[in-house]
Amino acid sequence: MYARVSNKRKDDLVNQVRYLEENVKDYDQVITDVGSSLNLKRKGFLKLLGMILNNEVSKVVIAYPDRLVRFGF
């Protein structure tokens, strides 16, 4: 699962992770980021992207489409 919030909404990250954990039955890992969705150099995003490219991920779950990237989801 992937959760991201902007710098202005850091407190919401806990709520977003809790929501995902309560509503997703099967998951192995939660990756989080604090920062803009336009910033493609976020540590969690880069970790997730690397895992996807290495075929280590079969499914990515996000609470809202714009949590992963702002455009092109």
Rank of each mutant, 00 (worst) to 15 (best):
Y2W: 10
A3V: 06
R4E: 01
R4H: 07
R4M: 08
V5Y: 07
N7H: 10
R9V: 07
R9A: 15
R9Q: 14
D11E: 15
D11Q: 15
D11P: 00
L13Y: 04
L13N: 03
N15A: 13
Q16L: 06
R18A: 12
Y19D: 04
L20C: 01
L20E: 02
E21W: 01
V24Y: 02
D26K: 10
Y27A: 03
I31V: 14
T32D: 06
D33V: 08
V34P: 07
V34M: 06
S36K: 12
S37K: 08
S37T: 08
L40M: 05
L40T: 10
K41S: 10
R42M: 06
G44C: 11
F45P: 00
L46W: 07
K47W: 02
L48Y: 12
L49D: 14
M51G: 03
I52S: 01
L53P: 03
L53H: 13
L53N: 15
L53W: 10
N54F: 02
E56R: 15
E56A: 10
K59Y: 05
K59G: 05
V60Y: 04
V61G: 01
I62E: 02
Y64T: 15
D66N: 11
R67K: 13
R67V: 04
L68N: 00
L68T: 00
V69R: 15
F71V: 15
G72T: 09
F73K: 14
F73R: 10
